[in-house]
């Protein structure tokens, strides 16, 4: 009400810097991402893509500048509210971050358990979301016994199960063949249709072309360009 435009932007960054000790990982980033947008963050390895995502869910503290998520200034968020902030996100980590000592089922169910959902609902949702990623027959397996691609699909399942407002996907198709990558992208488009905002960090240009959307290009910690890529139908599978 006080600041109407903020409502339409779910993510805003103003002159954000991030340093790892002396290393400048992000330099003066200013950007806005509207609700229900499909955004790519591109750039070569080491450009700062993962770091940028981390700042959004407070995986790293902002060194300088302001980050607003859904109208909330992260610099002012009390410690107790951090879990609530994180539940707005569904995150597919670059290194998956599955708990190796918990079964596939428990890994995915964790999100809903942490949010206090009922056991019945959890069972139903975990099964249906694992079916979506094609892993319904592996619920009792443990992550170390799965291939990289299978782990990635579990990570996707965990990210989408809580119906988050924002999906952060860090190289979500990195270990997948083209066909499975297509399945994952289809899923992410699905959550977009249901109203979520989807942010994908990748250096896979083919992937961007396949989907189309806004691309924010990072180069050595700086935001170099932001442009719109049209969906190119020639090599689309669907």
């Amino acid at each position: 009400m006080i600041d109407a435009p903020e409502k339409t932007f779910i993510i805003r960054m103003f002159h954000v810097h991030h340093n790892y000790g002396p290393k400048k990982a992000l330099i003066d980033i200013t950007l806005d991402i509207a609700k229900n947008e499909f955004v790519f963050i591109s750039g070569p390895s080491g450009a700062g893509k993962t770091t940028l995502l981390k700042l959004l869910y407070l995986g790293e503290p902002v060194s300088e500048g302001q980050v607003l998520i859904d109208g909330i200034n992260l610099a002012r968020i009390p410690r107790k509210r951090i879990p609530q902030l994180r539940r707005k996100f569904g995150i597919i980590f670059q290194d998956y971050k599955l708990i190796p000592t918990k079964s596939v089922y428990d890994n995915v169910a964790l999100v809903l358990e942490a949010a206090g959902a009922k056991n019945r609902l959890i069972q139903k949702k975990v099964k249906s979301v694992l079916r979506l990623v094609g892993m319904e027959d592996r619920l009792k397996s443990f992550p170390p016994s799965l291939s990289g691609g299978e782990q990635q699909r579990i990570a996707v399942a965990r990210a989408i199960i809580g119906d988050p407002k924002i999906i952060l996907a860090d190289e979500p198709t990195g270990s997948l063949d083209e066909e499975s990558a297509e399945v994952i992208l289809e899923l992410l488009r699905g959550v977009l249709i249901r109203g979520a905002t989807v942010i994908i960090a990748t250096h896979d240009k083919a992937l961007m072309r396949k989907t189309g959307g806004c691309v924010l290009h990072l180069e050595q910690g700086r935001l170099e360009a932001s442009r719109f890529i049209e969906k190119q139908y020639d090599n689309a599978i669907f």
Binding site: I82, P83, R86, K102
Partner: peptide, 14 residues
């Protein structure tokens, strides 16, 4: 494991 739980939104109490 605890770190991952926190990242997916688990509270300290949980």
């Amino acid at each position: 494991e605890v770190e991952i739980m926190r990242l997916v939104g688990a509270t300290d109490n949980f």
